[in-house]
C-alpha cells in the first residue's frame, strides 16, 4: 500500500517564505520526532541511557544525536531526533528514563519547527519577543520559552552571531505565527508584495 501522505501546518506558506529576502529567511523544519521528558534529579545513568547529558542550566540546549535536548524546566526537557520516528524516539527515551522514575511522552506533532536565518532576524524577533536576544546574552546554546507576538514559542539560539534561530511553535498557532513573521519582515522586504 502506498505510504500514508504527511502534511504539516505551514504547507500553504512556503511560497510566501520563499519571497523573503536573504536577511530574513524562514524555512520550515517539519516532521521532527520530539519527546517531552520528565525526570527529577538527573542521575549519571540518565546520560548513558539517553546518550546525552541533559542540560541542567536553565534556558539552554545541547546537541543530542541528530537532534537536541532543550531544558524546559527543572525536571522537564524536550528531546528531538531527526532520524527516528516519533514512536521509536518515545520508546527509546521512555525505556531510558522510566527506571529512573521519569516519564516520556511523544509530542512530535505538538509543535512545528521554523528556522530563522539572516542579518535581520533579530530585528524581526524583537518586534514580538521581550527577552534580550543580543548574541552576548543569547548566543548558541541558549534557549527560552517565551512569547513571540501572541504565540508561545520555544526559541533556540543556533549561532553566536545572532543570525540563526530555531522557533518551535504549537502547531495550531503556526499559521498565526507565519503571518506574524511575514508581517514583521515586511519592512525588510525590498519590494513589498503583500
Amino acid at each position: 500500500m502506498a505510504e500514508l501522505l504527511r502534511t504539516h501546518p505551514l504547507e500553504g506558506w512556503s511560497a510566501a517564505f520563499e519571497r523573503l529576502p536573504d536577511t530574513v529567511r524562514i524555512t520550515v523544519e517539519p516532521y521532527v520526532a520530539m519527546v517531552d521528558v520528565r525526570l527529577g534529579p538527573v542521575p549519571a545513568e540518565a546520560s548513558t541511557a539517553l546518550g546525552v547529558d541533559l542540560p541542567t542550566a536553565p534556558n539552554t540546549w545541547v546537541p543530542a544525536g541528530t537532534g537536541r535536548a532543550v531544558w524546559l524546566g527543572p525536571d522537564e526537557w524536550l528531546v528531538s531526533s531527526t532520524t527516528e520516528t516519533p514512536e521509536e524516539l518515545e520508546a527509546r527515551v521512555r525505556a531510558a528514563v522510566l527506571p529512573l522514575g521519569g516519564s516520556a511522552a511523544d509530542v512530535s506533532a505538538q509543535r512545528i519547527g521554523l528556522r530563522l536565518t539572516g542579518a535581520r532576524v533579530r530585528d524581526v524577533l524583537a518586534k514580538g519577543c521581550s527577552i534580550d536576544l543580543h548574541p552576548r546574552v543569547f548566543g548558541r546554546g541558549r534557549s527560552a520559552q517565551t512569547a513571540l507576538g501572541q504565540a508561545g514559542v520555544v526559541l533556540l539560539a543556533l549561532s553566536d552571531a545572532g543570525d540563526n534561530h530555531g522557533v518551535l511553535v504549537r502547531s495550531s498557532f503556526a499559521g498565526y505565527l507565519a503571518e506574524w513573521l511575514l508581517d514583521a519582515a515586511l519592512e525588510f522586504t525590498p519590494t513589498p508584495t503583500r
Binding site: F173, L177, W180
Partner: peptide, 10 residues
C-alpha cells in the same frame, strides 16, 4: 488578522 491568534486544526 493579528488581533488575536486563530488556532486551527490539521
Amino acid at each position: 488578522r493579528l488581533f488575536d491568534p486563530e488556532r486551527v486544526t490539521a
